[in-house]
Design a protein around this nucleic acid. Structure first.
Lengths: 184, 184
DNA sequence: CAGAAGCGTTCTGTATACGGAACGGCAAGC
DNA sequence: GCTTGCCGTTCCGTATACAGAACGCTTCTG
């Protein structure tokens, strides 16, 4: 969701370096062999696997092909993005930009059994929609929250502060955020 | 042996550039604002969004934080597996299996401007829910379809035959299919 | 209108990622 | 032993990604 800080992670270099080495070994390639297949210098690959280089997008892309994975396979841990407040865990499933310039983001949302998350206003015209799948959620503009049980859904304007909480255990659902056209 | 100078895929630059711009706008950030939040030069970001730069891993990582997405959110194509039949294009975003054995599938749905798709019954107790984001859809159990406009949603039991169609152009939305516990 | 503030783009010097060459290590063959 | 071959690492000159400054543009505000 907007404005959340990422969980501070170790340098992405180390993670990518490890992943490339793993995949290369899994394919049975030597370092030199992979470098020539990918069309990059083997010195480049050597330092990249050692974690002493900061690869460019195109270098990673060149490697993804011979390794047989999409680009996300090199940089991803495969999981979505966790919110550090410990209450809401939102995993981004997709972002769609429409012809008119508006965007739609879809998240898989998990709300912890206890605690409340207050999200600051988004841009004017933004609308959120939550379909609850398990548990019961209490969500909506701050002061006007509503209870949403499994199998129900609710939508609310998100251009004012709004809150997320669960009742009687944790809750899960699909959150859709629709941002209207028109830049900042 | 340089095997693939592959069938020239679209440069990953363009895809990443577009994606960053989309996410930035969705967050309501200006180019300058995002650059300073990410701790990178705004000239860098400008050329990056224009697709004239080949960003390094660390630059992408710096941007992922303020944009609230994991690194894969920047480099991924964001699409899942597609099940097209000429009328309905359903891209699977995620499948979740719950403690009780039930499952939830989330799709990004595109319904073509003309044509109707009739879907056979699913298992007893299965419920579908559609949130329409663009266009107007006409969906529901066959014989009891309802119109769902952009910004509206509808759910229906899917244990009887049900249909999908669009009205006045194509329609897009988020489809959630909830299957109850109790396997085949 | 002038001035200020904010935006995104273009310019500029520096740091560094790049490909390729040169190097040392290890194994098999003559 | 001395090759020959391939490995991964380290070095080097060049291309370029970077941060920041300078610029033109638009939108307020007095």
């Amino acid at each position: 969701m907007p404005e959340d800080k990422p969980t501070r992670d170790v340098s992405p270099r180390a993670a990518v370096a490890r992943r490339i080495t793993e995949l290369r070994r899994a394919q049975g390639f030597t370092l030199s062999g992979l470098a020539s297949r990918a069309g990059i210098g083997k010195g480049t690959l050597s330092e990249l696997e050692a974690g002493t280089r900061n690869p460019t997008l195109e270098t990673l892309y060149a490697l993804a092909g011979p390794l047989g994975v999409p680009l996300t396979g090199l940089v991803g841990d495969g999981t979505g993005h966790s919110v550090p407040d410990g209450v809401v865990d939102a995993r981004l499933l997709t972002v769609r930009t429409h012809d008119d310039g508006g965007t739609t983001e879809v998240f898989w949302l998990t709300i912890a059994a206890r605690g409340t998350r207050v999200s600051p206003p988004h841009r004017h015209g933004t609308v959120e929609h939550l379909r609850v799948v398990r548990g019961t959620a209490c969500v909506g503009p701050s002061g006007a929250e509503v209870l949403v049980r499994a199998g129900e859904s609710s939508s609310w304007p998100a251009d004012t502060g709004h809150t997320y909480a669960a009742r009687d255990g944790s809750a899960q659902g699909v959150l859709t955020i629709e941002t209207p056209p028109g830049g900042p």
